[in-house]
């Protein structure tokens, strides 16, 4: 884990660009789905203690809707698409016309639709990333959960668990023009994937 602490700013920039390209394409896909402009914040690349990662979505107990995909291939990792339950309802309402009452639950149709939306967005995130890095990356079938952020996100940290108490994540927030749909993409590459990403992008790895 120490090795990540020595990542120079330059390498963080490279990872930020990775997030930028991935999330940029996903935001475009979302914008097409909604037929509305979608804004995206500059990605943040941070090495964070496990505890603080769920703070990014409102705390470990905050209930969130998460679509999770395990990334397989040459640079494996975990990809989360996270929304508030209200934003998820609003998204469903606009895309599929489901009523947007927020009783806090999602029926089977809604869950399936959310998974599919997650699949489309994550697919465009990953395929642009794969094009950029020339590494093969493909998502598993998405899984959906609505639960406490801590419980959900800790699942994506297990690969880091063996190595230390921090994880490096690439976080991108995007929001639709009128702020009704706001979501976050978390890409948490496995610890061993960083070297591969850097190598394929021609970043020297030896001289940190």
């Amino acid at each position: 884990m120490e090795v990540f602490k020595h990542f120079k700013e330059f390498k963080m920039d490279v990872l930020r660009e990775v997030g930028n390209i991935g999330a940029g394409n996903a935001a475009t896909a979302l914008s097409r789905l909604l037929n509305k402009p979608v804004d995206m914040a500059v990605p943040k690349v941070q090495l964070l203690p496990f505890e603080e990662i769920s703070e990014k979505v409102g705390g470990a107990e905050q209930v969130v809707v998460a679509i999770f995909l395990r990334v397989e291939g040459e640079a494996p990792g975990n990809l989360f698409f996270i929304l508030s339950p209200e934003a998820a309802k609003s998204l469903l309402n606009r895309l599929v016309g489901f009523p947007s009452e927020t009783d806090g639950m999602f029926n089977e149709m809604e869950q399936s639709a959310l998974c599919e939306i997650g699949n489309i967005l994550a697919g465009s995130y990953l395929s642009s990333l794969a094009d950029f890095t020339k590494l093969s990356m493909y998502p598993t079938v998405p899984a959906l959960a609505m639960d406490m952020a801590g419980a959900i996100l800790s699942f994506g940290l297990l690969q880091f668990g063996h190595m230390g108490d921090d994880a490096l994540l690439i976080d991108t927030t995007f929001l639709e023009g009128d702020h009704e749909v706001e979501g976050q993409f978390f890409l948490i590459p496995d610890p061993d994937s960083f070297a591969k990403i850097f190598k394929s992008l021609g970043v020297p790895i030896d001289h940190d």
Binding site: F50, E51, S54, G59, A60, E61, D147, M148, A149, G150, A151, I152, S154, F155, L158, G161, D165
Partner: peptide, 23 residues
């Protein structure tokens, strides 16, 4: 009690950990 953490409390009060998933 945070993730990957342990602690104790005695006599009164509450000891709590939040957001247990696979943990």
């Amino acid at each position: 009690v945070g993730m990957a953490d342990l602690n104790v409390i005695q006599h009164s009060g509450i000891i709590r950990t939040v957001g247990l998933g696979s943990c």
